[in-house]
Computed example of a mutant assay.
Amino acid sequence: MILASSEFALPRSSSEKRFLYDIVANGRNGIDVDKFDYIARDCRACGLGCNFEFQRLMETMRVLDDEICYRAKDYLTIHKLFATRADLYRTVYTHPKVKAIELMVVDALVLANDYLQISSSIQDPAEYWKLDDSIIKTIETSPCPELKEARELILRIRRRNLYQACLYWLLFCNFCNEYAVPRDIMDNFKKVTPHDIVCSQKNGGVMLKEEDVAVSNVKIDLTRGKDNPLESIHFFKDYESDEKFTIPDERISHLLPASCQDMIVRVYSKKPELVEKISEAFENYQLKTYGIKAQ
């Protein structure tokens, strides 16, 4: 297992080169070859453009005081690294359809657990390593009546009959055309649950149950939560200088985003006929909790 380095971790010895631990999993500022690899690979695989040039950073970085530092003129290149990663999370890794399938797979595994005893493997490494995607095929092809509900969920995924997103709610520290929440509310945000939605429905008509609702709370940031990762990166002016320093955003551009984190709440209906009812309940929840609803 590769453990991330950290600026708070003590070196194992006074002579150890700590910067070596930053190469693969950088806990100091998040710049590492792991991100270089999956960002370039996933952008290519998904047909997305990638403006980030990791080769430029690798050719110009240098070590100062046991820390990997970067040229000051590469500030925007590094910003593109984090922005591209955040864009991948928004448009690929946490895409509404991707999260819908994820929720359905989880539900199928939970339904199949009593019969297949999936959770019993968690504490046994010799069995746990055997859990892979083949378990989906096992559920899908099994004739056992105990797996009927799980099998039907997998079949729905195959037929693209997915859980339907009722409404999107974007929590931002700044203005967003979907929903804007003040920073103090963002700081104290409590994850939305199916129970919250069901308790916010109006009386009359079909009564919702928690098992009718699925909720996905997605956080997207630049690797350091609300903090700007570029504030923890050290730069140097040129190769003749051994001085390292940080660069505030405002010294580069006033067009850079002031917020470094989004929280997206998506509410899904497991049954197509309940989409409108669940959407109404989610709007009621927003009005009751924050006094405003998404537009």
Rank of each mutant, 00 (worst) to 15 (best):
T91F: 10
L167M: 04
R28P: 05
K130L: 05
T60W: 04
Q295V: 02
E250H: 15
L162T: 03
L170I: 12
D37N: 12
Q117V: 02
R160F: 14
Q201D: 02
R12T: 06
A4C: 07
I292P: 01
M1Y: 13
E59A: 05
K137G: 06
S216W: 02
T193C: 07
Q295A: 04
W169C: 07
F189D: 09
D242E: 12
I23H: 10
R151Y: 03
E210S: 08
K190D: 10
N203H: 13
D87C: 01
F19V: 03
V275Q: 15
K202T: 07
N217W: 08
R251Q: 12
A86R: 04
K202I: 01
D242I: 01
E283K: 11
D32L: 02
E178F: 08
N284P: 08
Y70Q: 12
E149L: 10
S269G: 11
S269V: 03
R151G: 01
M1C: 07
E53R: 09
K80H: 13
L222Q: 14
D22N: 14
A180C: 06
A72D: 00
R156Q: 15
D249I: 02
R90V: 05
A40S: 11
R44W: 11
E53D: 15
F189Q: 09
S121E: 14
K237Q: 05
R160C: 12
Q295G: 10
K190Y: 12
R159G: 05
K209Y: 00
R71H: 08
R183G: 09
Y168V: 07
I118Y: 11
A281V: 04
D124A: 07
N26A: 11
S120K: 10
S5W: 08
G205L: 05
L230W: 07
V267W: 02
T246S: 14
F282C: 02
A100K: 01
V218K: 00
A112F: 06
A112L: 03
S259H: 03
E178L: 04
R18E: 14
K202S: 15
A294H: 10
K277D: 04
K97L: 07
A4Q: 11
I118V: 09
G291T: 04
F8Y: 15
P125A: 08
R71Y: 09
P257T: 00
E16K: 14
W129R: 12
T289G: 02
R44P: 03
C43I: 01
D262T: 01
A294Q: 14
R41Y: 14
K130V: 05
D32K: 05
